[in-house]
Design a protein around this nucleic acid. Structure first.
Lengths: 219, 219
DNA sequence: CGGCATTCGTTAAACAATTAACAATTTAAT
DNA sequence: ATTAAATTGTTAATTGTTTAACGAATGCCG
Protein backbone atom coordinates (compact mmCIF):
# COMPACT_ATOMS: atom_id res chain seq x y z
CA UNK A 1 0.00 0.00 0.00
CA UNK A 2 1.87 3.04 -1.23
CA UNK A 3 1.85 6.14 0.88
CA UNK A 4 1.36 9.28 -1.17
CA UNK A 5 4.09 11.66 -0.05
CA UNK A 6 4.12 13.85 -3.11
CA UNK A 7 2.87 12.98 -6.53
CA UNK A 8 4.79 13.96 -9.67
CA UNK A 9 3.16 16.74 -11.57
CA UNK A 10 2.87 14.58 -14.66
CA UNK A 11 0.98 11.99 -12.63
CA UNK A 12 -1.57 14.55 -11.56
CA UNK A 13 -2.23 15.47 -15.16
CA UNK A 14 -2.63 11.83 -16.11
CA UNK A 15 -5.06 11.33 -13.24
CA UNK A 16 -7.29 13.96 -14.79
CA UNK A 17 -7.31 12.03 -18.07
CA UNK A 18 -7.93 8.82 -16.21
CA UNK A 19 -10.74 10.23 -14.14
CA UNK A 20 -12.51 11.35 -17.27
CA UNK A 21 -12.36 7.80 -18.59
CA UNK A 22 -13.47 6.33 -15.29
CA UNK A 23 -16.53 8.52 -15.13
CA UNK A 24 -17.40 7.46 -18.63
CA UNK A 25 -17.01 3.82 -17.69
CA UNK A 26 -19.08 4.44 -14.59
CA UNK A 27 -21.84 5.86 -16.72
CA UNK A 28 -21.61 2.85 -19.02
CA UNK A 29 -22.08 0.55 -16.06
CA UNK A 30 -18.62 -0.98 -15.98
CA UNK A 31 -17.56 -2.23 -12.57
CA UNK A 32 -13.94 -3.23 -13.04
CA UNK A 33 -11.16 -1.97 -15.26
CA UNK A 34 -7.55 -3.09 -15.64
CA UNK A 35 -4.47 -0.96 -15.99
CA UNK A 36 -4.05 -2.25 -19.51
CA UNK A 37 -7.53 -1.17 -20.51
CA UNK A 38 -6.96 2.25 -19.01
CA UNK A 39 -3.68 2.48 -20.82
CA UNK A 40 -5.16 1.61 -24.17
CA UNK A 41 -8.04 4.02 -23.75
CA UNK A 42 -5.96 6.97 -22.60
CA UNK A 43 -2.82 6.37 -24.62
CA UNK A 44 -0.61 5.85 -21.59
CA UNK A 45 1.47 2.74 -20.98
CA UNK A 46 -0.05 0.27 -18.54
CA UNK A 47 3.13 0.37 -16.46
CA UNK A 48 2.85 4.08 -15.99
CA UNK A 49 -0.80 3.77 -15.06
CA UNK A 50 -0.01 1.29 -12.32
CA UNK A 51 2.84 3.43 -11.06
CA UNK A 52 0.53 6.41 -10.86
CA UNK A 53 -2.04 4.43 -8.93
CA UNK A 54 0.72 3.25 -6.65
CA UNK A 55 1.44 6.87 -5.77
CA UNK A 56 -2.05 7.45 -4.53
CA UNK A 57 -2.32 4.11 -2.77
CA UNK A 58 -4.19 1.89 -5.14
CA UNK A 59 -6.46 -0.93 -4.21
CA UNK A 60 -6.83 -3.17 -7.21
CA UNK A 61 -7.24 -6.89 -7.35
CA UNK A 62 -4.90 -9.03 -9.44
CA UNK A 63 -6.49 -10.53 -12.50
CA UNK A 64 -9.58 -8.38 -11.99
CA UNK A 65 -8.38 -4.82 -11.98
CA UNK A 66 -9.67 -1.78 -10.17
CA UNK A 67 -13.20 -1.07 -9.10
CA UNK A 68 -14.22 1.83 -11.28
CA UNK A 69 -16.31 3.79 -8.80
CA UNK A 70 -13.88 3.33 -5.96
CA UNK A 71 -10.88 4.35 -8.03
CA UNK A 72 -12.65 7.42 -9.34
CA UNK A 73 -13.51 8.42 -5.80
CA UNK A 74 -9.90 7.89 -4.72
CA UNK A 75 -8.63 10.17 -7.47
CA UNK A 76 -11.17 12.83 -6.63
CA UNK A 77 -10.10 12.58 -3.03
CA UNK A 78 -6.36 12.83 -3.65
CA UNK A 79 -6.84 15.68 -6.09
CA UNK A 80 -9.29 17.24 -3.65
CA UNK A 81 -11.84 17.79 -6.37
CA UNK A 82 -14.90 17.47 -4.16
CA UNK A 83 -14.33 20.28 -1.69
CA UNK A 84 -15.85 23.51 -2.94
CA UNK A 85 -13.39 26.29 -3.73
CA UNK A 86 -14.74 29.77 -4.34
CA UNK A 87 -12.86 31.60 -7.05
CA UNK A 88 -12.66 35.06 -8.55
CA UNK A 89 -11.63 36.11 -12.02
CA UNK A 90 -9.67 39.27 -12.70
CA UNK A 91 -9.66 40.47 -16.30
CA UNK A 92 -12.72 40.01 -18.48
CA UNK A 93 -11.00 40.12 -21.83
CA UNK A 94 -11.45 37.50 -24.50
CA UNK A 95 -9.74 34.84 -22.46
CA UNK A 96 -11.62 35.82 -19.34
CA UNK A 97 -14.91 35.52 -21.15
CA UNK A 98 -13.98 32.12 -22.52
CA UNK A 99 -13.09 30.94 -19.03
CA UNK A 100 -16.33 32.33 -17.64
CA UNK A 101 -18.36 30.39 -20.17
CA UNK A 102 -16.36 27.22 -19.69
CA UNK A 103 -17.65 24.18 -17.86
CA UNK A 104 -14.32 23.27 -16.30
CA UNK A 105 -14.95 24.91 -12.97
CA UNK A 106 -17.34 22.55 -11.30
CA UNK A 107 -15.45 19.52 -12.51
CA UNK A 108 -12.52 20.45 -10.29
CA UNK A 109 -14.64 21.75 -7.45
CA UNK A 110 -14.19 25.42 -8.23
CA UNK A 111 -17.03 27.91 -8.26
CA UNK A 112 -16.69 31.23 -10.03
CA UNK A 113 -18.06 33.67 -7.46
CA UNK A 114 -16.81 37.07 -8.57
CA UNK A 115 -15.46 38.92 -11.60
CA UNK A 116 -13.27 42.01 -11.53
CA UNK A 117 -11.97 44.38 -14.17
CA UNK A 118 -10.69 47.92 -14.46
CA UNK A 119 -12.59 48.91 -17.58
CA UNK A 120 -15.38 51.30 -16.56
CA UNK A 121 -17.50 50.18 -19.50
CA UNK A 122 -17.48 46.65 -18.14
CA UNK A 123 -17.98 47.38 -14.46
CA UNK A 124 -21.59 46.95 -13.52
CA UNK A 125 -22.45 44.67 -16.42
CA UNK A 126 -23.36 41.05 -15.85
CA UNK A 127 -21.62 37.99 -17.29
CA UNK A 128 -22.71 34.44 -16.61
CA UNK A 129 -25.00 35.78 -13.92
CA UNK A 130 -22.18 37.55 -12.11
CA UNK A 131 -21.92 41.30 -11.78
CA UNK A 132 -18.56 42.69 -12.86
CA UNK A 133 -16.97 44.74 -10.12
CA UNK A 134 -14.14 47.22 -9.99
CA UNK A 135 -10.90 45.51 -9.08
CA UNK A 136 -10.52 47.93 -6.19
CA UNK A 137 -13.33 46.09 -4.45
CA UNK A 138 -11.43 42.83 -4.48
CA UNK A 139 -10.35 42.95 -0.85
CA UNK A 140 -13.83 43.36 0.55
CA UNK A 141 -15.46 40.90 -1.79
CA UNK A 142 -12.88 38.18 -1.26
CA UNK A 143 -13.23 38.51 2.49
CA UNK A 144 -17.00 38.65 2.45
CA UNK A 145 -17.50 35.78 0.04
CA UNK A 146 -14.69 33.68 1.46
CA UNK A 147 -12.96 33.34 -1.89
CA UNK A 148 -9.74 31.37 -1.78
CA UNK A 149 -8.59 31.18 -5.38
CA UNK A 150 -8.10 33.69 -8.17
CA UNK A 151 -7.62 33.66 -11.91
CA UNK A 152 -5.37 36.31 -13.44
CA UNK A 153 -6.45 36.79 -17.04
CA UNK A 154 -4.78 40.15 -17.48
CA UNK A 155 -1.98 41.50 -19.66
CA UNK A 156 1.56 40.68 -18.63
CA UNK A 157 2.15 44.23 -17.49
CA UNK A 158 -0.66 43.99 -14.95
CA UNK A 159 -0.05 40.46 -13.77
CA UNK A 160 2.18 41.11 -10.78
CA UNK A 161 -0.02 43.93 -9.50
CA UNK A 162 -3.04 41.69 -9.82
CA UNK A 163 -1.26 38.95 -7.94
CA UNK A 164 -0.32 41.37 -5.18
CA UNK A 165 -3.93 42.46 -4.85
CA UNK A 166 -5.07 38.87 -4.66
CA UNK A 167 -2.48 37.93 -2.07
CA UNK A 168 -3.33 40.99 -0.05
CA UNK A 169 -6.96 40.00 -0.06
CA UNK A 170 -6.08 36.60 1.34
CA UNK A 171 -6.23 34.41 -1.75
CA UNK A 172 -4.23 31.21 -1.46
CA UNK A 173 -4.02 30.05 -5.07
CA UNK A 174 -3.55 31.87 -8.35
CA UNK A 175 -4.14 30.60 -11.86
CA UNK A 176 -2.00 32.85 -13.98
CA UNK A 177 -2.33 33.25 -17.75
CA UNK A 178 0.23 35.98 -18.21
CA UNK A 179 3.66 34.95 -19.49
CA UNK A 180 5.30 36.10 -16.29
CA UNK A 181 6.72 34.35 -13.25
CA UNK A 182 4.76 35.75 -10.35
CA UNK A 183 6.44 36.63 -7.09
CA UNK A 184 4.28 35.53 -4.18
CA UNK A 185 4.70 34.31 -0.59
CA UNK A 186 5.54 30.66 -0.33
CA UNK A 187 2.20 29.75 1.17
CA UNK A 188 0.44 30.88 -2.02
CA UNK A 189 0.20 28.42 -4.88
CA UNK A 190 0.69 29.64 -8.43
CA UNK A 191 -0.14 27.71 -11.57
CA UNK A 192 1.00 29.45 -14.72
CA UNK A 193 -0.49 28.55 -18.04
CA UNK A 194 0.38 31.16 -20.59
CA UNK A 195 -1.31 30.50 -23.89
CA UNK A 196 1.81 31.59 -25.70
CA UNK A 197 3.70 28.57 -24.37
CA UNK A 198 1.78 26.21 -26.54
CA UNK A 199 2.76 28.01 -29.71
CA UNK A 200 6.36 28.42 -28.65
CA UNK A 201 6.84 24.75 -27.92
CA UNK A 202 4.98 23.82 -31.10
CA UNK A 203 7.33 25.99 -33.08
CA UNK A 204 10.36 24.37 -31.51
CA UNK A 205 9.01 20.86 -31.91
CA UNK A 206 8.06 21.44 -35.53
CA UNK A 207 11.58 22.46 -36.35
CA UNK A 208 13.11 19.47 -34.60
CA UNK A 209 10.64 16.84 -35.67
CA UNK A 210 11.97 16.72 -39.20
CA UNK A 211 15.27 15.35 -37.98
CA UNK A 212 13.80 12.98 -35.44
CA UNK A 213 11.66 11.33 -38.05
CA UNK A 214 14.18 8.69 -39.04
CA UNK A 215 16.08 7.81 -35.85
CA UNK A 216 13.13 7.63 -33.50
CA UNK A 217 10.94 4.59 -33.67
CA UNK A 218 8.17 4.89 -31.11
CA UNK A 219 6.18 1.80 -30.31
CA UNK B 1 30.49 26.12 -27.53
CA UNK B 2 27.59 23.84 -26.71
CA UNK B 3 25.89 21.99 -29.53
CA UNK B 4 22.14 21.96 -29.19
CA UNK B 5 21.11 18.34 -29.62
CA UNK B 6 17.75 18.53 -27.92
CA UNK B 7 16.61 21.13 -25.49
CA UNK B 8 14.60 20.21 -22.38
CA UNK B 9 11.00 21.24 -22.61
CA UNK B 10 11.34 23.35 -19.50
CA UNK B 11 14.20 25.22 -21.10
CA UNK B 12 12.07 26.11 -24.09
CA UNK B 13 9.46 27.61 -21.83
CA UNK B 14 12.06 29.60 -19.97
CA UNK B 15 13.45 30.88 -23.25
CA UNK B 16 10.07 32.38 -23.99
CA UNK B 17 10.14 34.24 -20.70
CA UNK B 18 13.68 35.31 -21.35
CA UNK B 19 12.97 36.50 -24.85
CA UNK B 20 10.21 38.70 -23.57
CA UNK B 21 12.64 40.32 -21.18
CA UNK B 22 15.30 40.69 -23.84
CA UNK B 23 12.96 42.46 -26.20
CA UNK B 24 12.04 44.81 -23.42
CA UNK B 25 15.69 45.51 -22.71
CA UNK B 26 16.29 46.00 -26.40
CA UNK B 27 13.55 48.58 -26.49
CA UNK B 28 15.06 50.29 -23.48
CA UNK B 29 18.39 50.53 -25.25
CA UNK B 30 20.36 48.07 -23.14
CA UNK B 31 23.25 46.43 -24.96
CA UNK B 32 24.53 43.83 -22.53
CA UNK B 33 22.86 41.74 -19.85
CA UNK B 34 24.26 39.17 -17.44
CA UNK B 35 22.81 35.86 -16.45
CA UNK B 36 22.33 37.18 -12.96
CA UNK B 37 20.31 40.15 -14.18
CA UNK B 38 18.18 37.89 -16.32
CA UNK B 39 17.66 35.59 -13.39
CA UNK B 40 16.56 38.36 -11.09
CA UNK B 41 14.19 39.80 -13.64
CA UNK B 42 12.56 36.51 -14.61
CA UNK B 43 12.65 34.74 -11.27
CA UNK B 44 14.93 31.96 -12.48
CA UNK B 45 18.26 31.11 -10.91
CA UNK B 46 21.27 32.48 -12.75
CA UNK B 47 22.75 29.00 -12.95
CA UNK B 48 19.73 27.70 -14.76
CA UNK B 49 19.80 30.63 -17.14
CA UNK B 50 23.39 29.89 -18.12
CA UNK B 51 22.64 26.21 -18.51
CA UNK B 52 19.77 27.05 -20.81
CA UNK B 53 21.96 29.31 -22.89
CA UNK B 54 24.54 26.56 -23.02
CA UNK B 55 21.97 24.33 -24.66
CA UNK B 56 21.47 26.72 -27.51
CA UNK B 57 25.13 27.55 -27.87
CA UNK B 58 25.58 30.80 -26.05
CA UNK B 59 28.08 33.47 -26.89
CA UNK B 60 28.53 35.70 -23.89
CA UNK B 61 31.62 37.43 -22.65
CA UNK B 62 32.86 36.91 -19.12
CA UNK B 63 32.46 39.91 -16.87
CA UNK B 64 30.27 41.59 -19.49
CA UNK B 65 27.40 39.27 -20.17
CA UNK B 66 25.41 38.63 -23.31
CA UNK B 67 24.68 41.04 -26.11
CA UNK B 68 20.96 41.59 -25.84
CA UNK B 69 20.10 41.82 -29.53
CA UNK B 70 22.28 38.89 -30.51
CA UNK B 71 20.94 36.67 -27.76
CA UNK B 72 17.36 37.52 -28.64
CA UNK B 73 18.05 36.64 -32.24
CA UNK B 74 19.65 33.36 -31.22
CA UNK B 75 16.59 32.39 -29.20
CA UNK B 76 14.26 33.29 -32.04
CA UNK B 77 16.38 31.20 -34.32
CA UNK B 78 16.54 28.10 -32.14
CA UNK B 79 12.84 28.31 -31.38
CA UNK B 80 12.24 28.99 -35.08
CA UNK B 81 10.02 31.94 -34.30
CA UNK B 82 10.84 33.92 -37.43
CA UNK B 83 9.74 31.53 -40.16
CA UNK B 84 6.09 32.07 -41.03
CA UNK B 85 3.76 29.21 -40.19
CA UNK B 86 0.25 29.30 -41.58
CA UNK B 87 -2.32 27.96 -39.14
CA UNK B 88 -5.96 27.05 -39.09
CA UNK B 89 -8.39 27.01 -36.18
CA UNK B 90 -11.08 24.39 -35.81
CA UNK B 91 -13.83 25.23 -33.36
CA UNK B 92 -15.02 28.78 -32.91
CA UNK B 93 -16.44 28.47 -29.43
CA UNK B 94 -15.56 30.76 -26.59
CA UNK B 95 -12.00 29.56 -26.45
CA UNK B 96 -11.66 29.70 -30.21
CA UNK B 97 -12.82 33.28 -30.23
CA UNK B 98 -10.42 34.21 -27.49
CA UNK B 99 -7.56 32.64 -29.42
CA UNK B 100 -8.62 34.41 -32.59
CA UNK B 101 -8.53 37.77 -30.86
CA UNK B 102 -5.24 37.06 -29.14
CA UNK B 103 -1.96 38.62 -30.14
CA UNK B 104 0.14 35.55 -29.46
CA UNK B 105 0.23 34.32 -33.05
CA UNK B 106 2.66 36.65 -34.70
CA UNK B 107 4.98 36.57 -31.73
CA UNK B 108 5.75 32.91 -32.43
CA UNK B 109 5.64 33.27 -36.19
CA UNK B 110 2.19 31.79 -36.66
CA UNK B 111 -0.44 33.32 -38.89
CA UNK B 112 -4.09 32.44 -38.48
CA UNK B 113 -5.17 31.81 -42.07
CA UNK B 114 -8.43 29.88 -41.78
CA UNK B 115 -11.24 29.13 -39.37
CA UNK B 116 -13.48 26.07 -39.45
CA UNK B 117 -16.56 25.01 -37.56
CA UNK B 118 -19.52 22.71 -37.94
CA UNK B 119 -22.20 25.08 -36.71
CA UNK B 120 -24.27 26.25 -39.73
CA UNK B 121 -25.06 29.51 -37.99
CA UNK B 122 -21.36 30.32 -37.82
CA UNK B 123 -20.30 29.18 -41.27
CA UNK B 124 -20.09 32.12 -43.59
CA UNK B 125 -19.69 34.71 -40.90
CA UNK B 126 -16.45 36.63 -40.51
CA UNK B 127 -14.23 36.76 -37.43
CA UNK B 128 -11.04 38.78 -37.26
CA UNK B 129 -11.27 39.29 -40.98
CA UNK B 130 -11.44 35.59 -41.70
CA UNK B 131 -14.45 33.85 -43.16
CA UNK B 132 -15.59 30.84 -41.16
CA UNK B 133 -15.77 27.73 -43.33
CA UNK B 134 -17.37 24.36 -42.95
CA UNK B 135 -14.92 21.88 -41.50
CA UNK B 136 -15.53 19.64 -44.50
CA UNK B 137 -13.59 22.11 -46.59
CA UNK B 138 -10.47 21.68 -44.50
CA UNK B 139 -8.66 19.42 -46.94
CA UNK B 140 -8.93 21.79 -49.87
CA UNK B 141 -8.21 24.93 -47.92
CA UNK B 142 -5.19 23.53 -46.14
CA UNK B 143 -3.73 22.36 -49.43
CA UNK B 144 -4.51 25.57 -51.27
CA UNK B 145 -3.27 27.89 -48.55
CA UNK B 146 -0.31 25.75 -47.60
CA UNK B 147 -1.35 25.59 -43.97
CA UNK B 148 0.96 23.51 -41.81
CA UNK B 149 -0.43 23.85 -38.28
CA UNK B 150 -3.83 23.50 -36.71
CA UNK B 151 -5.54 24.41 -33.47
CA UNK B 152 -8.16 22.06 -32.10
CA UNK B 153 -10.50 24.09 -29.89
CA UNK B 154 -13.31 21.56 -29.94
CA UNK B 155 -15.06 19.41 -27.31
CA UNK B 156 -13.23 16.32 -26.15
CA UNK B 157 -15.63 14.10 -28.04
CA UNK B 158 -14.68 15.71 -31.35
CA UNK B 159 -10.97 16.06 -30.73
CA UNK B 160 -9.73 12.85 -32.29
CA UNK B 161 -11.91 13.25 -35.37
CA UNK B 162 -10.64 16.78 -35.78
CA UNK B 163 -7.08 15.60 -35.46
CA UNK B 164 -7.68 12.91 -38.08
CA UNK B 165 -9.07 15.50 -40.47
CA UNK B 166 -6.08 17.73 -39.89
CA UNK B 167 -3.59 14.95 -40.38
CA UNK B 168 -5.39 13.84 -43.51
CA UNK B 169 -5.16 17.34 -44.90
CA UNK B 170 -1.41 17.33 -44.37
CA UNK B 171 -1.06 19.35 -41.22
CA UNK B 172 2.19 18.70 -39.34
CA UNK B 173 1.48 20.24 -35.95
CA UNK B 174 -1.58 20.33 -33.72
CA UNK B 175 -2.28 22.54 -30.75
CA UNK B 176 -4.89 20.62 -28.81
CA UNK B 177 -7.08 22.09 -26.10
CA UNK B 178 -9.23 19.04 -25.46
CA UNK B 179 -8.38 16.93 -22.41
CA UNK B 180 -7.55 13.96 -24.60
CA UNK B 181 -4.34 12.31 -25.72
CA UNK B 182 -4.47 12.46 -29.49
CA UNK B 183 -3.37 9.53 -31.60
CA UNK B 184 -1.40 10.75 -34.60
CA UNK B 185 1.46 9.56 -36.84
CA UNK B 186 4.86 10.11 -35.32
CA UNK B 187 5.79 12.78 -37.82
CA UNK B 188 2.99 15.00 -36.52
CA UNK B 189 3.68 17.13 -33.48
CA UNK B 190 1.00 17.53 -30.83
CA UNK B 191 1.01 20.06 -28.03
CA UNK B 192 -1.81 19.57 -25.58
CA UNK B 193 -2.88 22.35 -23.30
CA UNK B 194 -6.21 21.54 -21.76
CA UNK B 195 -7.52 24.41 -19.70
CA UNK B 196 -8.80 21.95 -17.13
CA UNK B 197 -5.24 20.95 -16.23
CA UNK B 198 -4.58 24.26 -14.56
CA UNK B 199 -7.50 23.86 -12.19
CA UNK B 200 -6.71 20.26 -11.45
CA UNK B 201 -3.12 20.93 -10.50
CA UNK B 202 -4.19 23.99 -8.53
CA UNK B 203 -6.60 21.86 -6.58
CA UNK B 204 -3.93 19.30 -5.81
CA UNK B 205 -1.32 21.90 -4.89
CA UNK B 206 -3.74 23.77 -2.65
CA UNK B 207 -4.41 20.66 -0.67
CA UNK B 208 -0.73 19.83 -0.28
CA UNK B 209 0.57 23.31 0.33
CA UNK B 210 -0.83 23.43 3.82
CA UNK B 211 1.47 20.65 4.96
CA UNK B 212 4.51 21.93 3.07
CA UNK B 213 4.24 25.28 4.76
CA UNK B 214 6.33 24.41 7.79
CA UNK B 215 8.96 21.94 6.57
CA UNK B 216 9.93 23.70 3.36
CA UNK B 217 12.07 26.77 3.62
CA UNK B 218 12.65 28.13 0.13
CA UNK B 219 15.24 30.83 -0.35
C1' DC C 1 -8.11 -29.45 -6.49
C1' DG C 2 -3.85 -28.00 -8.98
C1' DG C 3 -1.52 -25.79 -12.51
C1' DC C 4 -1.76 -21.73 -15.70
C1' DA C 5 -2.30 -17.36 -17.22
C1' DT C 6 -3.15 -12.73 -15.89
C1' DT C 7 -2.67 -8.58 -13.24
C1' DC C 8 -1.33 -6.09 -9.31
C1' DG C 9 2.15 -3.81 -5.94
C1' DT C 10 6.68 -2.87 -5.39
C1' DT C 11 11.51 -2.50 -6.28
C1' DA C 12 15.20 -1.52 -9.24
C1' DA C 13 17.41 0.44 -13.14
C1' DA C 14 17.64 3.87 -16.84
C1' DC C 15 16.91 8.27 -18.22
C1' DA C 16 16.21 13.30 -17.86
C1' DA C 17 16.55 17.66 -15.52
C1' DT C 18 18.07 20.62 -11.97
C1' DT C 19 21.46 22.28 -9.08
C1' DA C 20 26.05 22.98 -7.75
C1' DA C 21 30.87 23.58 -8.66
C1' DC C 22 34.91 25.20 -11.00
C1' DA C 23 38.44 26.43 -14.40
C1' DA C 24 38.89 29.83 -18.07
C1' DT C 25 38.34 34.51 -19.56
C1' DT C 26 37.72 39.24 -19.46
C1' DT C 27 37.47 43.86 -17.47
C1' DA C 28 38.98 47.16 -14.22
C1' DA C 29 41.93 49.03 -10.70
C1' DT C 30 46.28 49.77 -8.65
C1' DA D 1 51.84 45.12 -15.69
C1' DT D 2 49.69 42.58 -12.24
C1' DT D 3 46.36 41.55 -9.27
C1' DA D 4 41.49 41.18 -8.14
C1' DA D 5 36.69 40.73 -9.03
C1' DA D 6 33.15 39.12 -11.86
C1' DT D 7 30.98 36.19 -15.21
C1' DT D 8 31.04 32.76 -18.58
C1' DG D 9 31.14 27.69 -20.59
C1' DT D 10 31.31 23.19 -19.07
C1' DT D 11 31.47 19.23 -16.20
C1' DA D 12 29.98 16.81 -12.17
C1' DA D 13 26.62 15.54 -8.75
C1' DT D 14 22.16 15.55 -7.02
C1' DT D 15 17.51 15.07 -7.63
C1' DG D 16 13.36 13.66 -9.94
C1' DT D 17 10.73 11.05 -13.34
C1' DT D 18 9.95 7.37 -16.46
C1' DT D 19 10.63 2.73 -17.92
C1' DA D 20 11.45 -1.95 -17.01
C1' DA D 21 11.32 -6.07 -14.18
C1' DC D 22 9.55 -9.47 -11.02
C1' DG D 23 7.43 -11.87 -7.04
C1' DA D 24 2.76 -12.32 -5.04
C1' DA D 25 -1.97 -12.75 -5.49
C1' DT D 26 -6.08 -14.04 -7.89
C1' DG D 27 -9.33 -16.09 -10.94
C1' DC D 28 -9.94 -19.70 -14.49
C1' DC D 29 -9.87 -24.21 -16.60
C1' DG D 30 -9.18 -28.83 -16.74
Amino acid sequence: MGEHKKMPRASVLRMELCLELLEQLEADGSVYVTSRQIGEATGVSADKVRQDFFHLGSEGKPKVGYEVAQLAELIRSVLDLKTAKKTCLVGLGNLGRALTASNIWSRAGFELAAIFDTDPSLIGTTTAGIRVRNVTEIYGVVKAENIIAGVAAVPASAAQDTADLMVGAGIRAIWNFAPVKLHVPEDVVVESQSLAWGLITLSYEMKNNIKDQAPERAK
